[in-house]
Nucleic acid binder design. Structure first.
Length: 430
DNA sequence: TCTGGGGTCCTTAGTCCA
DNA sequence: TCTGTGGACTAAGGACCC
């Protein structure tokens, strides 16, 4: 991990790039015949959500994170697509390469967003907006995709500037934005203070309600309050952070090569599961998926966490820390199952998740007692990794998953990015 | 209107130990 | 030996982001 090193210095040199309706735009690029139609990418089943909506779909009120069932009601004639995460990752890689061509100081936030620190490329000239426009032109020319770009004196203002540049949906159709918006040096507070406090990075529904109950509606209202009072009202860390942002201060550097803190896998089931026997194969499959990702990233973890969401949507987590870091499916499953056994699934479990945190570098791994006693499991994991590399993720999986008679389908992992793909079957095989 | 999956960070509370 | 304190660690939950 490395950082830009220099703190923000009042130079207009931070750029935020955000792809416009990324997943939907990538699909439209593949299927030009859908251009102009409302396109929705995401979970296609009853329990799925929208991952991305084209601006034509947004005209109908559809937005990301909306339940798919609601999106269908709002716009029954929209084209609903299941999404292709590996392909979006590939396209994202091409876009990030363009950004890294501008500066090595690129901090990806997700597949479709990144911060850049271009201060080193300015040579004392005020040309960051020009660089932003060049980025936009190159992404369009080389990838056939549009993006919006914000420019400011720090990361947070650059991100807000991007929002100003974005296309908007209106009842009469999409309104295309300026594409690039720069917040001039000295104009930060004028730009910031009229905004709703909810627009600040880090203010979600809960904090928004709390601030509103304190009479704080705009960013200017927040900036005018004493910092200590804000800290006492919403918590020390969040209070100090938001107060600084409201005053236009954000000292965070652009960080390249962020280290991963946890790796997990979770799934919402097409219908609720009520017994340990039903849950166990899913737990095994998820432990196997997490283990494979740990090994492919050459990391090990010490804390195993399971997440259980019941039918009434109450969600609990249980975690357990093992003495030595692990990356084997069997070891993860063992810990996870012990925790799951202590829970009562009879009210109905709609989601189950397994994750590993407290990650450490796996390239200098120490053998665990388990491995010293019998290295067969580690070898089996390595062989599985090799087979998956050659024949795909569904080619092989834990034996526990084939004994139920529903075979290879069980080995599919990570295919349910936005919820189960089809409505609950009326059969008894889950 | 029923709410995904991948994460990060913070807060609070309990325990252990020096 | 007992008590208080503070730090490190762990566990659980919540809020937030894309």
């Amino acid at each position: 991990m490395s950082t830009a090193g220099r703190p923000p210095d009042g130079t207009l040199g931070f750029i935020h790039v955000d792809m416009d309706a990324f997943f939907a735009s990538v699909e439209l690029r593949r299927r030009p015949e859908l251009k102009g139609q409302p396109v929705v990418v995401g979970g296609t089943g009853d329990r799925g959500v929208v991952a991305a909506a084209s601006y034509e779909a947004r005209v109908f009120g559809i937005h990301s994170a909306m339940p798919s069932t609601r999106a269908r009601r709002l716009c029954p004639h929209a084209v609903f697509l299941p999404g292709d995460h590996p392909h979006y990752g590939e396209v994202s890689g091409h876009v990030m390469a363009i950004l890294r061509d501008v500066t090595p100081l690129v901090e990806p936030l997700s597949l479709d967003e990144a911060f850049l620190d271009v201060r080193g490329a300015l040579h004392g000239e005020d040309r960051a907006p020009e660089i932003a426009a060049e980025i936009r032109d190159r992404v369009l020319a080389e990838q056939g995709l549009t993006c919006s770009v914000g420019v400011a004196t720090n990361k947070f203002l650059a991100k807000l500037a991007t929002e100003r540049a974005k296309p908007k949906a209106s009842p009469s159709g999409p309104i295309f934005g300026t594409g690039v918006h720069a917040v001039p040096v000295g104009g930060e507070l004028e730009f910031l203070h009229p905004m709703q406090v909810r627009e600040l990075w880090g203010v979600g529904p809960a904090t928004g309600r709390k601030l509103s109950s304190l009479g704080i509606e705009t960013v200017g209202d927040l900036a005018a309050q004493p910092r200590r009072w804000i800290e006492a009202s919403i918590g020390k860390a969040a209070g100090a952070h938001l107060h600084a942002l409201a005053n236009g201060r954000d000292d965070r550097p652009v960080i390249t090569g962020q280290e991963l803190k946890s790796i997990g896998h979770e799934e919402t089931f097409a219908r609720d599961l009520c017994t340990h026997e039903d849950l166990r194969p899913h737990l095994m499959r998820m432990a196997d998926a997490v283990a494979a990702r740990l090994r492919s990233g050459t990391v090990l973890g010490r804390t195993v966490t399971i997440k259980v969401r019941f039918s009434d949507f109450t969600t609990i987590t249980r975690s357990s820390t093992v003495p030595e870091p692990i990356d084997g499916a069997r070891a993860i499953a063992l810990e996870a199952e012990q925790m799951l056994r202590k829970l009562d699934p009879t009210p109905g479990v709609r989601l189950l998740g397994v994750s590993l945190s407290q990650l450490v570098d796996g390239s200098v791994r120490q053998l665990t007692l388990d491995e010293v006693a019998g290295p067969a499991w580690t070898e089996a994991d390595s062989v599985m990794d090799e087979i998956r590399d050659k024949f795909g993720s569904s080619a092989i999986g834990p034996a526990a998953l084939v004994s139920r008679g529903d075979g290879l389908r069980r080995f599919e992992v990570g295919q349910q990015q936005w919820g189960p793909s089809s409505p609950a079957p009326d059969t008894d095989d889950e």
